[in-house]
Nucleic acid binder design. Sequence first.
DNA 1: TGTATATAGGACTAAAATGGTCCTATTATG
DNA 2: CATAATAGGACCATTTTAGTCCTATATACA
Lengths: 165, 165
Amino acid sequence: MLKLSKLTDYAAVVMAQIARHPEQSHAATELAEKVRLPRPTVSKTLKMLARAGLLTSQRGVQGGYQLARSASRISASDIIAAIEGPIAMTECSHADGECELFNSCGVASNWQRVSLAVGTLLDSVTLAHLAQSNPIKLPVQLPIQSVTLAEAVEVEHPFEVEKDY
Amino acid sequence: MLKLSKLTDYAAVVMAQIARHPEQSHAATELAEKVRLPRPTVSKTLKMLARAGLLTSQRGVQGGYQLARSASRISASDIIAAIEGPIAMTECSHADGECELFNSCGVASNWQRVSLAVGTLLDSVTLAHLAQSNPIKLPVQLPIQSVTLAEAVEVEHPFEVEKDY
DNA sequence: TGTATATAGGACTAAAATGGTCCTATTATG
DNA sequence: CATAATAGGACCATTTTAGTCCTATATACA
């Protein structure tokens, strides 16, 4: 499914909620009510987001959470990474690969490129985008051009993958 | 992590192996040795791929698996979907949403757009791309322009998300 | 026609990840 | 000093995933 975890989903919802009132401080209890999710769970995601540096926190009376920077400077991948760790589609996607099958694999480097492309895409989506509840539908030019991929035409010749069709 | 399951990873490796010799039929045992993975597991993924229509199978002596269509007509999302089901980043990404929080959520429609964009990206990557073991690094223009997203500039004004920064 | 070689389908188990709750600090306000 | 908030982490139940294995079915060919 290539699915985000529920907690990541909650995180996005909560972040969006905060982004809509960035000037004030938001307590876990308040946010839980707003997004209609159990308080302990909301609290847990808030802690994770704060530890990742996306939220600042204030303890004590009148405390709570605020965005650490503007919503347009927080990306979807920031939020995902805060909850699930770095975005990597495969085991070997991250640099310090310890997959002993790396050599016999044959697709590793290309999966890494795909992973990179997905990462770039998710970088380009901001919390400001997500928080907008009544979106204007405008095409957005994504900076995918910077991601390199093998060219299909070149592949087919050496391996003759097209022959059987 | 937004990670693919191991089986999906195996599936990609096995498909790539087959794609490199598309004219011949490949038995599970042979493929398992080539990719150095346990036979039952490889067998399982092959069955899934066949059931999804990406491979054709032949039983009996001299039987085995072949690509159902050319490698350039099989996409990464085909492979992912064969193992993990349809690509959907969030619970509510697929049409028949039954998330009771949909209304209070506030980010649903935009996550759906992001999910769509990731799907489009994965559609544009073919097995021919993946199978190429020594990739030529060429920029590829992805058809992401067709995916609509909320415009950040428009978001910031109504909710004043930029004010606090 | 029988035997060997394949895949098909699904049951089953063990291990890991996830979701969710709760408890005990710590910090800040007034 | 009491109250209200976050910090950190322990803990458990549930679900998902990985992996194996068994039985049935189909095909080739001697």
